[in-house]
Amino acid sequence: MKKLMLLFFSALLLVACTDNSNNDELKAYVSDFENSGFINNSNQIIVLSEEGIRISSHVQRGKSHRKSNIDKVLEKENIPLTQQFNKVYKDATIKTDGSKYYVTLDENIKLEFEKVGLRIIEDPEGVEYYTQEYSEEN
């Protein structure tokens, strides 16, 4: 009986380790940021275009929401809390590894996101960003 249970649990473990369907769904692609990009509930946007990576913020920032990756960009750019922001970083890059995105806007601004759903990414602060578009990779 013990051998049978051990065999059963070993088979379950093997199936769990080889089932990549969920992992493939959450694979990060640079193209995920193309077209409409991603927007969070505070109306902050990050999008990849032919010109570079555009960061936009059309909200009065303050204590009403968690500090997002984009809030950190605005702080590094010394943008006042009440000022809107829209900038294209021309030499920016996006690299991926598994479900992670590593965005470098310039030598002082580096961001990280993780794909947590088909059209959802999350920054390290737990702020979620959504896209209307499906990646062409999927």
Score class of each variant (00 low, 15 high):
residue 22 N to K: 15
residue 82 T to Q: 12
residue 111 L to V: 02
residue 117 G to V: 01
residue 7 L to C: 14
residue 5 M to H: 08
residue 49 S to K: 12
residue 59 V to D: 02
residue 96 T to G: 09
residue 78 N to I: 08
residue 10 S to W: 00
residue 16 A to G: 02
residue 43 N to E: 15
residue 95 K to T: 14
residue 73 V to S: 05
residue 8 F to D: 14
residue 67 K to H: 06
residue 114 E to T: 13
residue 125 E to L: 07
residue 57 S to R: 01
residue 26 L to Q: 05
residue 92 A to T: 03
residue 64 S to C: 14
residue 23 N to A: 14
residue 107 E to C: 07
residue 130 Y to T: 05
residue 12 L to D: 10
residue 24 D to V: 13
residue 29 Y to M: 10
residue 28 A to D: 04
residue 50 E to V: 01
residue 114 E to W: 06
residue 122 E to W: 04
residue 71 D to R: 09
residue 127 V to R: 09
residue 129 Y to H: 08
residue 35 N to E: 11
residue 99 S to W: 02
residue 5 M to K: 08
residue 86 N to V: 06
residue 124 P to A: 13
residue 67 K to R: 13
residue 115 K to W: 01
residue 21 S to W: 05
residue 106 D to M: 07
residue 126 G to C: 06
residue 117 G to Y: 14
residue 12 L to H: 09
residue 110 K to G: 07
residue 91 D to Q: 15
residue 108 N to H: 07
residue 135 S to F: 00
residue 34 E to C: 05
residue 123 D to T: 10
residue 132 Q to L: 12
residue 74 L to K: 04
residue 55 I to P: 03
residue 125 E to T: 14
residue 109 I to C: 06
residue 104 T to Y: 01
residue 50 E to H: 03
residue 78 N to K: 15
residue 33 F to N: 00
residue 120 I to C: 03
residue 30 V to E: 03
residue 58 H to L: 10
residue 3 K to C: 06
residue 122 E to D: 14
residue 72 K to L: 15
residue 91 D to W: 04
residue 64 S to V: 08
residue 133 E to W: 01
residue 86 N to F: 02
residue 68 S to G: 02
residue 32 D to S: 00
residue 102 Y to I: 07
residue 99 S to R: 15
residue 114 E to Q: 15
residue 78 N to W: 05
residue 28 A to Q: 02
residue 107 E to F: 08
residue 83 Q to F: 12
residue 36 S to F: 12
residue 97 D to Y: 15
residue 134 Y to E: 04
residue 56 S to M: 11
residue 41 N to F: 13
